[in-house]
């Protein structure tokens, strides 16, 4: 039953988080950054599910994961909309070119 240990889950989750973070920091394309976010979300969801599975019988964690997936979907939609409107305004989705908030 417990062939796959909690550590394995956590390692996968940590990898996912790291990749996501790496994508966020390094990718220039806004879409890629968005993808990085999704990875981080999923890492978090995976953590929830894993901890929930290994702790007790209550499935609070899994419920949280469902919520996270739903939230991520909604969030991607909003961010994509934002990216489109930024593109319309600035003709680019390259994140390092969008620096009008510069001090």
């Amino acid at each position: 039953m417990n062939i796959i240990s909690l550590q394995s889950y956590l390692i996968i989750s940590a990898l996912l988080f790291s990749f996501g973070l790496f994508a966020i920091i390094t990718r220039k394309n806004a879409i890629s950054v968005l993808l990085g976010f999704e990875l981080i979300m999923n890492a978090a969801g995976l953590n929830f599910a894993a901890f929930s599975h290994f702790s007790d019988s209550v499935i609070h964690g899994q419920v949280f994961t469902i919520f996270i997936i739903a939230l991520a979907a909604a969030e991607s939609a909003v961010i994509l909309a934002l990216i489109i409107s930024v593109y319309q305004k600035m003709d680019t989705v390259q994140i390092d070119e969008i620096d009008s908030l510069k001090g």
Partner: peptide
């Protein structure tokens, strides 16, 4: 320090992390 404030979001994030 004002150089840090370059408007590059990724830079901010990197620094934050």
């Amino acid at each position: 320090f004002s150089r840090l404030q370059n408007g590059k979001i990724q830079g901010y994030v990197f620094l934050g992390i």
